[in-house]
């Protein structure tokens, strides 16, 4: 083991090892996802995340060391979020067509997205820290991290909540859409982005560019709305004190 450990120390002196690991897990995850004929209950990101966690555990590589190297990838999350402005612009005419119903739906749906889970967790006796970590579960990662820090939650648990919420949103949306007989890609996309943040948005882009644009819109509006109102609401009910 000691020889392995020193090799691991050598490899992790460069961020390229963590970047390479992430790319490998992502590519294999995608390959398996395609091979399984794109199941909606098992998105590629979940397969890849499981593979990556398994690989880290097998090698005995501490998560903190990995995460430090992977910063070289995660820093791209900033420009990638900005890039979503492009599909948003391309779908602008269709969005403008629907601005009134979307403007009514968003505040209600975004509030309830946080409220339902918080109420259930609270009823089941979760601690204040856990509640604070779950509150931003439907918000895209870069915004959600800021909100969670403000509320006093754990960022690692938030990321888990984001994964579970995002992954669960996909089958929930397809089942509910079938149940309510909705086949409008705009509505499906908006619901995916509003509830399932980046993971739902990625799924929406798999459906069509229109669904993707509405998902980007839902994701960003939910992010902005929650970022502004959640910390305020938290203070009002006296959770943050």
């Amino acid at each position: 083991m000691s020889a392995d450990t020193s090799l691991l120390t050598l490899l992790t002196t460069t961020p390229l090892f963590a970047v390479g690991l992430t790319l490998t897990a992502y590519l294999i995850g995608n390959g398996v996802f395609q091979r399984l004929k794109r199941p909606s209950w098992l998105p590629a990101i979940l397969i890849a995340a499981l593979l990556l966690a398994g690989a880290l555990a097998l090698m005995g590589l501490p998560y903190a060391t990995y995460h430090q190297g992977a910063t070289w990838l995660t820093v791209l999350l900033g420009p990638a979020t900005v890039a979503l402005g492009m599909p948003l612009y391309q779908q602008l005419p269709r969005i403008v067509e629907l601005w009134r119903p979307l403007a009514i739906c968003l505040p209600i749906a975004a509030t309830l997205a946080a409220f339902y889970s918080l109420a259930i967790a609270w009823l089941l006796g979760s601690s204040d820290t856990i509640l604070a970590s779950l509150a931003a579960k439907s918000v895209t990662a870069p915004i959600a991290i800021g909100i969670t820090e403000q509320l006093g939650g754990t960022v690692a648990l938030l990321m888990g909540a984001l994964l579970i919420t995002g992954v669960a949103t996909i089958p929930c949306v397809s089942l509910t859409a079938r149940f309510l007989r909705i086949d409008d890609e705009r509505l499906i996309g908006f619901a995916l982005g509003l509830n399932g943040h980046a993971i739902g948005t990625v799924r929406a882009f798999e459906i069509s560019p229109t669904a993707g644009a509405f998902a980007s819109l839902g994701m960003s509006l939910t992010g902005i709305f929650t970022a502004v109102l959640l910390p305020l609401a938290w203070r009002l009910i006296g959770m943050g004190s």
């Binding site: 963590a18 992430t22 790319l23 897990a25 992502y26 998105p43 590629a44 990101i45 890849a48 995340a49 990556l52 966690a53 880290l56 998560y63 990995y66 995460h67 992977a70 910063t71 990838l73 995660t74 791209l76 999350l77 990638a80 990662a141 960022v155 690692a156 648990l157 990321m159 888990g160 984001l162 994964l163 980046a198 993971i199 948005t201 990625v202």
Partner: peptide
């Protein structure tokens, strides 16, 4: 986009 959020997600 999905790959970029992976490193954070794995933390859970």
């Amino acid at each position: 986009l999905a790959m970029l959020i992976m490193p954070g997600v794995v933390g859970v």
